[in-house]
Design a protein around this nucleic acid. Structure first.
Length: 108
DNA sequence: CCACTGACGAGTG
DNA sequence: GCACTCGCCAGTG
């Protein structure tokens, strides 16, 4: 991978830290990675991972507790939901994740 | 170098 | 809760 940026590595390190059965938001990951306000970078970095890395990118969702839909074909969104449900995370009728219950709390 | 695009967030009405 | 706007960084033409 040639997109080796310090910011990317920090993001990957945080995402890899997310415990199974929990989820984190882009903004949360950005903050923990030392990039407050750079939530977009998290999404950008994760997009480069999806498909082959050992990083649990599926545990990262947006601030509304929803899986962000991407542009091209995107069968990954469906796979992401299946993976999360497989880890024990439940979605409500609106296809959202109750963050008050599944949000990852570092240090807990 | 400039413009456009992309897994987003927070603030405002 | 929804719609709109602004801010942020990186990759591509």
């Amino acid at each position: 991978m040639t997109t080796t940026s310090a910011s990317y590595l920090a993001i990957y390190a945080v995402v890899a830290r997310i415990p199974r059965g929990c989820v984190a938001t882009y903004g949360q990951v950005a903050g923990l990675a030392g990039l407050p306000g750079r939530a977009r970078l998290v999404g950008y970095a994760l997009s480069a991972l999806a498909g082959g890395s050992a990083i649990p990118w599926q545990r990262v969702v947006n601030a509304r507790g929803r899986i962000s839909p991407r542009s091209c074909g995107s069968d990954a969104d469906t796979e992401q939901r299946l993976r999360l449900e497989h880890e024990g995370i439940q979605f409500d009728a609106g296809g959202r994740i109750p963050l008050e219950r599944f949000l990852w709390r570092p240090g807990e």
